[in-house]
């Protein structure tokens, strides 16, 4: 152990402070969600689970949760399949355009969700597509697509093409090569992409706001509760969504970062 310099200690303290800044508000919401009081102010009175119980009994919440799971699940399927196909296709068939296409495919990431949402609304309107959960799923798949594409592409960059070529020389069909070689190699990237797509969709507010019909997802329930009257049930829903997102993203992140860091250390 070498002694830390004062600048390192200062930087460490600053980092701790920023982390506190990032988490304290979320923590506060969680604390209030267990507080036995109908208003979200200090002092904390007593521990209770009643806000969660009243949520469980709340039909609007249960429906919205089911809708959110359906939308996120479908988004995972569409975004992952399409993003993966695009990643593999670009890598294999138009490698020279890879950089350009990567920038192109990340375009939807460069457009604020608000603008994506209203553009979709205007489009659905003009071509007379009725708003429903299906239109929400279509929108979410556009939001998630670039993430999947970039994750898959990045994985393929380090991928040795001689494996596929060897298989082809041995007479394996394209489909067989894909199933037996490409897909297994991509599996970890696909899993990450799926988790990230799920989280993106599960938390999405603005695109949903403009493209949903009469069905609500969880963030829409939070949004309308914020406007129809703040009850501690919001704290409970908020806490639940944060826990779900953190769990999903946390698993993905820990796996990735650990592998990256070990790879980096090995390389040194």
């Amino acid at each position: 152990m070498k002694a830390h310099s004062s600048s390192t200690i200062l930087l460490g303290l600053w980092t701790a402070f920023v982390l506190l800044f990032l988490f304290a508000p979320l923590f506060l919401v969680a604390v209030f969600s267990f507080n036995d009081s109908s208003i979200s102010v200090f002092p904390i009175r007593a521990f209770t689970l009643r806000w969660y119980e009243s949520l469980a009994a709340n039909e609007a919440f249960r429906t919205a949760l089911a809708n959110s799971l359906i939308v996120a699940g479908a988004t995972v399927v569409f975004a992952t399949l399409l993003g993966m196909a695009a990643g593999v296709g670009v890598h294999r068939y138009v490698p020279r355009l890879r950089t350009a296409l990567r920038s192109g495919a990340s375009l939807p990431m460069m457009v604020p969700h608000l603008i994506l949402g209203i553009a979709l609304l205007g489009f659905y309107n003009l071509v007379a597509i009725d708003l429903s959960l299906t239109t929400v799923i279509m929108g979410h798949s556009v939001v998630a697509f670039p993430y999947v594409f970039l994750i898959v592409s990045a994985r393929l960059v380090g991928f040795d093409p001689s494996l596929e070529e060897a298989a082809r020389d041995l007479g394996a069909s394209t489909a067989r090569i894909f199933w037996e070689i490409t897909l297994p190699l991509l599996a970890p990237a696909i899993l990450t992409a799926a988790l990230i797509s799920f989280t993106l969709s599960f938390d999405e507010v603005v695109v949903t706001f403009f493209t949903t019909g009469t069905d609500n997802t969880l963030p829409m329930v939070i949004w309308s509760m914020l406007r129809v009257g703040i009850t501690p049930e919001i704290n409970a829903i908020a806490t639940l969504t944060v826990v779900v997102s953190c769990a999903m993203a946390g698993v993905a992140e820990v796996i990735i970062r650990r592998s990256r860091l070990t790879a980096a250390k090995k390389g040194e």
Partner: peptide, 13 residues
């Protein structure tokens, strides 16, 4: 925009 950072490894197929 280094999304390589997101890549997991070490998971069996």
């Amino acid at each position: 925009l280094d999304l390589n950072l997101l890549l997991p490894a070490g998971m069996s197929r």
